[in-house]
Simulated assay, not measured.
Amino acid sequence: MLWIILAIIVFIVAATLLLFRLEDLSHLDRNDYPVQDATPSEANREVLGRIRELGQSSKGLRGKARLMALRKHMDGLSEGVELASELRHCDSPRGEWVLAPGCDTRRRILYIHGGAWAAGSPRSHRAITDRLSQITRAAVFAVDYRLMPENRFMDGVRDCREAYKWLLKHGPDGAEPVDFMVVAGDSAGGSHTLGLIAWIRDNGLRQADAAIAFSPSTDLTLTAPSNRNNIGTDPLLGPAFGGLSKIPLPVIWWATLAAFRVSPTSPVASPLRGDLKHLPPTLIHASDTEMLLDNARRYAARAEAAGSPVTLHTWHGMVHVWQIFVPLLPEADEAFDDIKAFLEQLESQGEAQASASA
């Protein structure tokens, strides 16, 4: 009996090493990215209270009931926020147009919401998409991609790809070419964003003019130091996912493979581990106290090494995806000011290059 157990253990170890061939990325761990030196605003206390409410909304619930409570609470995040934009439902692809007054429909943003690939919706992230449309004068399309566990992880990926291809040729009023295109997303949606721009490159499509990722998940292997070091300082992800630190990583990898039907080392699920050459200018926001901090740092460092332009801006003491608390949180306003400046600079550079080549 003992030899059978040993044989099984040897087989599992060998299969793990063969299937999950991990490149050691610890050389990407850098602490020289600047962090905004500012004490969190008073409004941050109210934000922390809302985060606690999110945790209470599913307390004591299990399984599907817990997930449904989480989805309901997330959908209520934008309630009470005064929106300047017109909202238009779209059936195919499924999603929602967010149109600020005076926006140019030939300028478009594909927004991919977060929620651990299992929650969130265009409705939950309206505070973000409304502000994006205002500051960019662009028509924002928030894709309502299929969520797990009712659907496979790759179903959601395909929905984002199809939405991007459709947006290249369609605006809110029908068929219309695009002049300026941005892909943006937060957390899990940030992962889809970074994976999407690599897929666009590999498939020869018109590349986005820029990408924006708020606190993106870039590596499902959970090997980045902040996945463990920042559990105690992340009021959102810490309580939800901090317990994973007690589970051996190989067990997590096998569980991820079973749930996602995609290896955690696949660039589709972990864009950090893909080819990062020839990607569009990308802006990443992260908080120095969140668990996904090193996901952002490692991606920025590796993309820079591959020659792709990435700008990483880090705020101090903010919750994961604090941009969703605009206009309550001054730091969220700062984040959108940063996005506006980033895109305006890109467009100015593009205009200068066009003039020089004319």
Rank of each mutant, 00 (worst) to 15 (best):
M154T: 06
G102L: 09
V321M: 12
T16G: 01
M154R: 06
G307N: 03
I128V: 11
A138T: 08
L28A: 04
L22G: 10
E42Y: 09
W254D: 00
L292F: 10
S215N: 07
A335P: 01
A356K: 13
L196A: 08
L99M: 09
K59E: 10
A332Y: 10
I252V: 07
S357A: 14
L99N: 00
W117E: 00
E334F: 09
P34D: 06
D32L: 07
S121F: 02
L329D: 02
H27V: 12
I12W: 12
P327V: 01
R88G: 01
W97V: 02
W3K: 12
H285R: 15
L272A: 08
L25N: 13
P122S: 03
A38G: 10
S58L: 14
I112Y: 01
A139G: 00
S308K: 06
N44A: 13
A14M: 14
A127Y: 01
K340N: 10
R66S: 13
E331F: 07
G189K: 02
V310W: 05
A358C: 13
D32N: 10
P280C: 15
E79V: 10
W117D: 01
P172M: 03
R21G: 09
E351M: 11
K72R: 15
G156Q: 04
K165V: 13
C103Q: 06
Y111R: 00
R146L: 06
P93V: 00
A303K: 10
R45M: 11
P216T: 02
V268P: 04
I109R: 00
P267A: 03
P239H: 04
V310T: 09
I8H: 14
A332G: 14
R228P: 11
S57L: 01
R66C: 05
L132M: 09
L77T: 14
T218H: 02
G274T: 05
G174M: 03
M68F: 15
S348Y: 15
I339H: 06
Q353C: 13
N44G: 07
I284G: 07
S26F: 07
A255K: 12
R131L: 09
W254E: 03
L28Q: 03
D202M: 06
P93C: 00
A269S: 08
R45S: 14
S287D: 05
A211I: 06
